[in-house]
Amino acid sequence: MDSFFDKLHETFIVDDRWKYLVNGLKTTLIITIFAVMIGMLLGFLVAIVRSTHDRTGRFKIMNLICKLYLTVIRGTPVMVQLLIIYYVIFASVRIDKTLVGIIAFGINSGAYVAEIVRSGIMSIDKGQYEAGASLGLNYSKTMKHIILPQAFKNVLPALANECIVLLKETSVAGYIALEDLTKGGDIIRSITYEPFLPLLAVAIIYLVIVVGLSALVGKLERRLKKSDRG
């Protein structure tokens, strides 16, 4: 038993090694939060372009660009995208790695958010557009005040799940030498040559956050259902 506490001490306490995990967690959360924001913005824009094109035939070229974006992003692994953005696109510029992470994961998440939001928009009855039109509202006002609020409510749980997925996916950020949570644990492992405890700690931290967020999503879903029933 003593040896376990020794190992614990050795892994986390000596040289303040726990700081690798805390700082890593900070980086992971920063990347996730800002990437979610970029992803939502991008995703909504793409979804609006795509569904407007499907319904009205407008935005032909924009729609093609969006389709290409969706195909490329959803058809390649996030890690490859991250590497390309860091080593190819930003190869000749000195740029903060965290920012690269935010951009890469944001662009990646945007594609998935776009498909979620688009399914939400497409699920709204055609009659809602007609009701808006019959009152003299133009397409963009109808979209903004009638369609999007309903679509958003319908897909809120799916969007929250996308955030959770994104949080876990950022664990590949270490490949561009970003010191996120996973990398933090890995650094401790490489110092102590003891893989079990640091990696276990990393796993537990992810798990706690994911379980916590999932519980929040569940609560949200129940609340939305309740307001549906009136």
Binding site: A133, S134, G136, Q150
Partner: peptide, 18 residues
């Protein structure tokens, strides 16, 4: 759209904004 403001419409399935 300006003209539609002057023409009210009522649908079979109401289409209220839920």
């Amino acid at each position: 759209n300006k003209i539609r403001e002057k023409m009210g419409m009522v649908f079979q399935h109401f289409y209220l904004f839920p």
